[in-house]
Design a protein around this nucleic acid. Structure first.
Lengths: 159, 159
DNA sequence: AATGAAAGTGTTTATCC
DNA sequence: GGATAAACACTTTCATT
């Protein structure tokens, strides 16, 4: 599976051009049929199905097919990146608070003075202060508002 | 489309339970067939197709179907979050450098002292210093290594 | 908004190379 | 690893409610 001998092959050499093409096509539209993919890469549909099975189950390179939602269309007009340094003894409370906040769409625990880096989706700037006030009881925070996203979330380079 | 009168409906009221269920099912597996989705939500396949068309084209809530790749399976063992403050006059050079670096999988331009927050995927810790050295000519940086991800990238809350 | 029917496509399994 | 063929399943369009 993902940690088998075959995996070493991927880390050390690379996926062939057809696998790369399949990943590229699916990253643009994960709902393309095997038949459509097959026409694009010049293989038969069963061959495409077998390659995808290997990418998913053997190599573990493809971990999921998912949907992207447009935050704006859902009314989220603002993204904030908040660095959070819990006060002594508050680390677990803070981590739990972040995990249980649905407006936190991503949170990493990092080295350095700031323990957490969280990404918040907000409906308006008015939501920010109450959120920070709640954390302020347990942590120091440093907030940045996202003005633009020069690199929107993209795939890891495929070797 | 995404900015029509219908969009106001979504911002102010909400998607119904079936639309929410469809989004939930597709977020787990974007390749589910209309037939499978229809069985799960208790509608016919053409009704599911029509609802998805509206979510995509009219509401603009569903913006894409995509694939997730496992960074580990591709040999990326480390994630770094780097805050970057360009030196005077270097802002555009720095932004271009970030956009053109494939190891940067996400970068936001933010308010505050740090101008950019970039997420790097690295094959080993040895890659970090050369990357930072290159930026150091044009910007001050502050680097955090990701130790854990209490909240992995998740969808915006659907009202 | 949703349905059923029908025509057109797509998927999957087995077999062969 | 890949192809073909055949049985089965799904998608899409349209008329209907």
């Amino acid at each position: 599976m993902a940690n088998s001998a075959r995996n070493l092959k991927i880390r050390n050499s690379s996926l062939d051009e057809i696998d790369q093409a399949l990943i590229g096509l699916l990253s643009d539209n994960a709902r393309l049929s095997h038949a459509e993919l097959a026409r694009s890469v010049g293989l038969s549909p069963p061959s495409v199905a077998e390659r995808l099975r290997r990418l998913e189950e053997e190599d573990g390179v493809v971990s999921a097919y998912t949907v992207e939602l447009d935050p704006k269309a859902l009314g989220y007009t603002l993204t904030a990146i908040v660095r959070i340094r819990p006060l002594p003894g508050q680390l677990h409370h803070v981590e739990k608070l972040l995990i249980e906040s649905p407006e936190v769409i991503e949170c990493d625990k990092v080295t350095g003075d700031d323990c957490f880096v969280a990404r918040y989706l907000l409906r308006s700037i008015d939501e920010l202060d109450p959120i920070l006030e709640r954390i302020a009881q347990r942590a120091q925070t440093s907030t940045s508002i996202v003005k633009a996203s020069p690199v929107k979330r993209r795939l890891p380079p495929v070797p």
